[in-house]
Design a protein around this nucleic acid. Structure first.
Lengths: 368, 368
DNA sequence: AGCGACGTTGTCATCGATGTCAAGCCACTG
DNA sequence: CAGTGGCTTGACATCGATGACAACGTCGCT
């Protein structure tokens, strides 16, 4: 059972003080090359590894960032986590992940606290809770960057997709292909993301002079299974939709298999969130693609900058999205309406404004 | 800027010693209900939260476990991570994740060390490196449970799927459906998992008296893109296979879209690893399913037990797998061979031995 | 009454590193 | 040659909690 090697052991062997070893380990100035070499020698000889927990205690924060997501098993969050982890690793930071679980948004504050007591240097949170006032105190010490959704009851850095514009584009795409009865499939309305996408859906309908049939709006599906049932009900209705805007991946993972297994591949679909194999189905699924990798990296970079300047104003970063036409979103309604037409490639891109934001990558919008 | 509240602050307010507060916080015995109440009162009044970093320093280990995987973006590892995180959370442990990246197995030891210096209580590692001797010293202090693959050059706890048996079953399934020219698609051979699955493939061929055509074995595909090219080459060969055993998800994510986009849905496929949408394709993809959730939880449970008994003998846990027939694996070869037949449901299950292990969930196999 | 046993509480040192501050040393200057 | 300043180095306290051990009080027993 080899004893732990501490800084002091190295100091004794190199015949210097612990402080000097500390200087060498941290690459600090003011150490003679001779001394440095002797210490290095002792370090390798003993195989010394600094105890980062001790360092964290002394400096008051761990070189770790916390990441809070809904579920790690969800491919969107998995890819987000992956990119955050990579960005952190490049800065020598470790990542602690915690998932909240999609049924219990209240757990969010507990999960966050379990990270705070471990003295994480900063947090990246994909919010689920209704209110984030509970973070007000902690943020003085521990910066937080929100991703995917805006926090409520608090002003903070955030990295977002323009859900409203994306929802509008998805719905507009279906309208442009001649659809008049378009269903909206979404999860809980208390989720701001869902609300924004739904608002985009309604705005597209309004802009095209279509009236919204509330019976075509199915929200509240918390799992793929529930989404499947909800979709089943929509399609079995009296005047079923000819197209569906599925507003997140879970919904799509319920809807699409349903359409395939019931042979209803005539129903047009646009899915918010790309998902694996979406391009291998027949028809391949048209999606709004927003790169979780881009979001994750942007959030990490924002957090790193924030760690260096705790007092800067809160900033919102908008990351780009695009519509990827693959077939399912370009199906015409049965019978057609004569208004259907081929779209030019450019029309599937975000509007000028969004593209502009997208390519600049950053929007310095300060919220009051 | 609110000062941090420490145990000492609570002690002063409650007019007791720091030690007593510590006792209350940790639910230790020997504290009068009265005192306890007074301390509790002070704790809530001040909103005290213990500093787990300080505790970790004192007790010599953090209440954190480290998880090392190849890539968090890979759905298999994402689900594994998710289940490990859940199990850890139930025990009040946090999880630090690190990914190695699939191109640089050498990075594994670096990643592991970055966790060790943070004093993680234990590690769960999906090994990529060739040799794990580098862990020999650390394991004295920090237990390690390997998942998915056996470590090399070291004896340790491990949670595995019986890759050999699974490879044999997948290949046997295709043979049973009349195929005689079956290709093997896999990643690097230095990966023991690939080697075992390939061995299973060969054993199935041998058992059925088929000779192995080495031109049908394509290994080395490290990404879906490479797998796609490899598959393209296999199918474009002189005597192309009528069936493919794709030995992991990355390969399947290259192969399956290729088959679909080139209209070659007549080629039979069995995929090792289930993947999203596999059941919505036409034909749906027959897979060997081994639950990453089960593996993750088993590994976590093993690690927890190990944390309580550092000296117990190394144990290998074998988790169950099953073949899920969905269509792609049951296609007959063009022209058929007359030997094709319908399979009874029971035949798609693992052999008695594996099922037995599976349901017991644990195999106490000690390795010398 | 005196004694030991036990339950409660406190004192002090400690985990391993780093910030503060000062001492030591050398060189260079006037 | 004393004085000044810069560079190296070290002594010591400290981060916030907990382990070891001791002191104290209370109780029950002989």
């Amino acid at each position: 059972m080899p004893e732990r090697v501490t800084l002091r052991d190295v100091a004794v062997l190199a015949d210097v003080s612990a402080k000097t070893v500390s200087r060498v380990v941290n690459g600090a100035d003011h150490v003679t090359p001779t001394t440095r070499a002797r210490v290095q020698q002792a370090i390798t000889e003993l195989g010394f590894q600094p105890n980062l927990v001790a360092r964290s205690l002394r400096v008051g924060r761990a070189d770790v960032i916390g990441l809070v997501v809904e579920s790690l098993a969800d491919p969107f969050f998995a890819r987000l986590t992956s990119s955050v982890e990579q960005a952190a690793h490049e800065r020598g930071l470790a990542v602690m992940v915690s998932s909240v679980g999609n049924q219990v948004p209240e757990r969010e504050s507990l999960v966050v606290e379990s990270l705070l007591v471990r003295q994480v240097a900063g947090l990246i949170v994909a919010p689920m809770a209704q209110d984030h006032g509970y973070l007000a105190g902690a943020r003085q010490r521990t910066p937080v960057v929100f991703v995917d959704r805006l926090p409520e009851g608090i002003v903070s850095d955030a990295v977002l997709v323009d859900d409203l514009a994306a929802g509008e584009m998805a719905t507009g795409h279906l309208i442009d292909h001649g659809h008049r009865r378009i269903a909206f499939l979404g999860s809980e309305l208390r989720n701001p993301t869902t609300r924004l996408r739904l608002a985009g859906y309604r705005r597209a309908l309004a802009r095209h002079g279509l009236d919204a049939d509330e019976s075509l709006v199915a929200v509240g599906a918390g799992s793929a299974g529930e989404a499947r049932s909800a979709a089943e009900q929509l399609l079995g209705g009296e005047r079923p939709p000819t197209a569906v805007f599925s507003s997140n991946m879970r919904c799509s993972l319920g809807l699409v298999p349903l359409l395939h297994s019931s042979g209803r591949t005539d129903v047009a679909v646009v899915s918010f969130d790309d998902f694996p194999m979406a391009d291998s189905l027949v028809p391949a699924v048209t999606v709004i693609d927003h790169d979780p990798e881009v979001i994750g990296r942007a959030a990490a970079e924002r957090l790193f900058r924030r760690l260096e300047d705790l007092d800067a104003a809160a900033e919102t970063v908008i990351v780009p999205f695009r519509l990827v036409p693959r077939g399912s979103g370009e199906l015409s309604p049965p019978g057609g309406t004569g208004r259907d037409r081929e779209l030019g490639q450019d029309e599937v891109l975000a509007t000028d404004r969004e593209q502009d934001m997208a390519h600049h990558g950053v929007e310095g919008g300060r919220r009051p």
